[in-house]
Simulated assay, not measured.
Amino acid sequence: METQTPSPPTRARMPGWLPRAMVLALALFGLFLLGDWAFHRLTGILIILLVAFFISLAMEPAVGVLARRGMNRGLATGVVFVVTFACVLGFLAALVTLLVHTVTNLVKEAPRLLDSGVEWVNRRFSQHFTLHDLSQRLLHESETVGNYAQDAANNAWGVSTTVLGGVAQVLVIALFSVYFTAGGPKLRRAVCSVLPPQRQVTVLHAWDLAIVKTGGYLYSRVLLAIISAVVHGVFLALLGLPNAIALGVWFGVIASFVPTIGTYLAAVLPILVALTIDPIDVLWIALFAVFYQFFQDYILQPRITSRTVDVNAAVALIAVLAGGALLGAVGALLAIPATATVQAFLSEYITRYAVTEDPRIDQTASRKNR
């Protein structure tokens, strides 16, 4: 009888698709790492392009008006940007002059303010401080002050580099803003040329909404700034503060373009000026700032922005916080017009239904039934 020898065990063979899948996975992972590296390297440029694009949207209504009246679009863009730059430079020049004047007055009035402060502390807390005692304690702490001064001197190069970098970024943003505004129709044509006709209509509609909301936000803020500058300038002039017009312009710009806390930040400079003249004016300025912030947020601003940037105050605050967390100060400034654009775009595609009367929704319904 013939015996059968057992056949050797067969080895499990690797599926043919597995090596290709592993190579593809490694390639995709490498592309992801490359894209992540490139994105972090190009984040600064992307932010510059985003800011320039929003600035071009804000300038588009004014450029469009001049272009429709027969002016060449490039020339219209130049006129609008030159006027805008002139206003910004004028504001900065007035601000620098105001700051220098305020610091000079504070230095001159510092001895009198210190005497008044020491006298008030002694009278209020039954102490016997003198300026000589304070100067001796300051000299005792001179080592600490010297260390701070040395650190500031060591960081002077870094600060100057940061300032120069900021100026360069502003110039690049201005350059791209001019390009985007002057070539707006060509840019829209280039974008639509790679889209099917139905998508082209949607993109152009969203583009128009962005122009309306961003331009409306800018012009409504300019109107709010003018009103705030006039009101605060008159108030500060009545208090007898010097440079009341310049302080009013400072108040108007900061209070209108810095959301929520702009008025309080703007009040710091007039308060410093008031300290050199009559400290009781500090109280009046602080009270007026609180009153005007309430008046602007709940009465003036809703009436002006209802047809341009109709964003709920709570939604606007959340948008500003989110924009600041993502992109810093730039994101905070662009958050409201971007939110208004998205809100307006979605409102045209979201179906809304009539709400039945219910006391849990509308308190007036329960009052009518009583």
Rank of each mutant, 00 (worst) to 15 (best):
Glu2Ile: 13
Thr3Gly: 05
Thr10Cys: 01
Ala12Phe: 08
Gly16Cys: 01
Trp17His: 12
Leu18Val: 15
Arg20Val: 06
Ala21Arg: 10
Met22Glu: 13
Leu31Glu: 07
Trp37Thr: 11
Trp37Lys: 15
Thr43Gln: 15
Val51Phe: 04
Ala52Gln: 01
Ala67Glu: 10
Asn72Trp: 04
Ala76Met: 02
Phe81Cys: 03
Phe81Gly: 03
Thr84His: 03
Thr84Tyr: 12
Val96Gln: 10
Pro111Lys: 01
Pro111Met: 13
Arg124Met: 04
Gln127Gly: 05
His128Ser: 13
Thr130Gln: 11
Asp133Val: 08
Glu143Trp: 06
Asn147His: 11
Ala152Gly: 05
Ala153His: 06
Ser160Gln: 04
Val163Lys: 08
Leu175Tyr: 11
Ser177Met: 11
Val178Leu: 15
Gly184Pro: 02
Val194His: 12
Leu195Gln: 07
Leu195Tyr: 03
Pro197Cys: 11
Gln200Glu: 10
Asp208Ile: 11
Asp208Arg: 15
Val212Trp: 06
Thr214Glu: 05
Ser220Ile: 00
Ala225Ile: 06
Ile226Leu: 14
Pro242Ile: 07
Ile245Thr: 06
Ala246Met: 05
Phe251Met: 15
Ile254Trp: 02
Ser256Phe: 00
Ala289Val: 01
Val290Phe: 08
Gln293Arg: 04
Ile304Ser: 02
Val309Lys: 00
Val311Ser: 00
Asn312Pro: 08
Asn312Asp: 09
Ala314Gln: 01
Ile318Tyr: 02
Ile318Asn: 00
Val320Thr: 14
Leu334Ser: 02
Ala335Ile: 00
Val342Ser: 00
Gln343Lys: 07
Ile361Gln: 04
Asp362Ser: 11
Asp362Ala: 11
Thr364Arg: 15
Arg367Gly: 07
Asn369His: 12
Asn369Glu: 14
Arg370Ile: 13
